[in-house]
Design a protein around this nucleic acid. Structure first.
Lengths: 142, 142
DNA sequence: CTGCTTGCAAAGGCTTTGCAGAACA
DNA sequence: TGTTCTGCAAAGCCTTTGCAAGCAG
């Protein structure tokens, strides 16, 4: 049970833990995908997730990538970010934050909540509850 | 003095005027589409625009609908609203405002700027300018 | 006339699905 | 052993495109 920080098995154990906490049974592919995604804050498309995961030696099919990303998002492990039709990104940063989206480059950047304030929220329509607030500031190169 | 796009009394002459002001040459199909769209504040998908326009007796092809909506949005006559992959709406209300999106029903509702405040906007990344701020509050039925 | 627009159908990109085999409890 | 998951390929959905005919200026 040597828990060296770099011990890959320790990381896997953590990931497994996290998945279980989110009510996701930790299969090999899911652990692989989660490990890659959660290694740092990032915004990746399904295509990019596929590339990254397979770059690490794992071989996960496209169908499983889509299924898994959808599952992770529903379970709150990651956030789904829709910036454009057919430009869906998966955000491993689940803390409350907003985004810059550069429409010229397709680049996405985080805006921390301390930097932007959404206030005077209107009351919700009756019979509904808030699911989340998406703020995307579209920018473009000069 | 041309009629404001939001004015429900906008007639064909006005529509032609408005299109010209937006640097859009007023063809029959474009006038037809603009007239329907600008008759009131609304959020419609391309499919719905097609239906509505053709319901009025005009016969506009799907390709032209897509081309025209894209053109209108680029020219600032309407706003493109992306709430979900493959859920793109075109908003005839071009004034600054935000939205509720009911993920259960697919319904979109306006939030006027007086009801919500986005403040403390962070400085933009160097070399960029703001294109617009999209705020979508996702809600769901209880 | 000359270039822009339209419409049709085909092509395209991304995502979902059906189903058989594999993995897991 | 029963259920869940995976992977492949096919299907699906929405949108764009190629190109010939039509229209505007």
């Amino acid at each position: 049970m040597a828990t060296h920080p770099d011990d890959p098995s320790a990381q896997i154990a953590d990931i497994t833990q996290i998945l279980r906490q989110h009510d996701i049974s930790p299969t090999k592919q899911r652990v692989e995908i989660a490990q890659m995604l959660l290694s740092r804050k990032q915004h990746l498309s399904a295509e990019q997730v596929l590339e990254e995961v397979n770059k690490r030696g794992a071989k996960v099919s496209k169908a499983t990538i889509y299924n898994t990303l959808g599952l992770f998002a529903r379970k709150g492990l990651i956030k789904e970010l829709v910036v454009d039709p057919s430009k869906v990104f998966y955000d491993s940063n689940v803390s409350d934050h907003y985004h810059f989206y550069n429409v010229d480059t397709g680049e996405l950047m985080d805006i921390e909540m301390t930097e932007l304030n959404v206030s005077r929220l209107p009351s919700l329509p009756p019979g509904t509850r808030a699911e989340g607030v998406d703020v995307i500031i579209k920018i473009r190169n000069n």
